[in-house]
């Protein structure tokens, strides 16, 4: 296996994106605070962006489409972080905790 031109192969990027997606899902399940789950969600977003960029670079004829799409995802991720963090702050004010196990008022 030739290591010299590894950056020209789409498989490397796709496997890295798959590993980031798997790590993000693992963190989403295992994390026990809201901020930790938010960070895991950001890792999942990044995996999706890397996947889109790799497919855009290697398999699409117009290379600016994927960049614009990833730019939109970045904007949405920023908005999502702002909203989620304000909700987390509000939850912390009311419950004095952001551990997900203690926010169980609706769990019957």
């Amino acid at each position: 296996m030739n290591l010299l031109h590894l950056q020209e192969r789409p498989a490397v990027y796709l496997v890295v994106a798959a590993s980031m997606l798997a790590l993000g899902v693992y963190g989403m399940i295992r994390r026990r605070t809201l901020i930790g789950m938010l960070i895991a969600g950001e890792i999942i977003f990044s995996a999706a962006m890397l996947n889109l960029m790799a497919v855009n670079r290697f398999f699409v004829s117009d290379p600016s489409v994927g960049q614009i799409f990833v730019l939109f995802i970045m904007g949405l991720a920023a908005a999502e972080v702002a909203i989620a963090l304000s909700i987390i702050i509000a939850v912390y004010r009311n419950y004095r905790s952001i551990a997900s196990a203690e926010l169980s008022e609706l769990s019957g």
């Binding site: 789409p10 498989a11 796709l14 496997v15 994106a17 798959a18 590993s19 997606l21 798997a22 790590l23 899902v25 693992y26 399940i29 290697f58 398999f59 699409v60 004829s61 117009d62 290379p63 600016s64």
Partner: peptide
């Protein structure tokens, strides 16, 4: 769950029959 996701997505990326693009215009 995460292992299954990694295995299936990585396998899809490695084995997929990806098309070769047309010539770049931009």
């Amino acid at each position: 769950v995460s292992g299954a996701i990694f295995w299936s997505v990585a396998r899809l990326g490695l084995m997929g029959n990806w098309p070769t693009p047309a010539i770049d215009r931009k």
